[in-house]
Amino acid sequence: MDSLIRQLKEQIIDHLNLEGLSPDDINEKEPLFGEGLGLDSIDALELTLLLERGYGIKLENPQEGKKIFQSVETMAEYIQHNKK
């Protein structure tokens, strides 16, 4: 799980162009949206693409995203259970 969280942080930095950040700057328990990293709706699209391309997970129901993208930790848990 730790290595998945680390990898996810690196991918988020890369996909969302957060070039000034390092994985250590991201707390896996902090909210990704609003507070924390302060991501927006465009970033949510990027995260959806990341799940699809990086882990073969297609979100059928967009409402699911709210729970999955709460934090890096919730993303990692979802990937672990649904990775194809």
Partner: peptide, 17 residues
Amino acid sequence: SKELYKKYSKAYIKFFK
């Protein structure tokens, strides 16, 4: 741009995006 950001700006994470 990173030099100028460090010198003249305050923490604003959106800058990097």
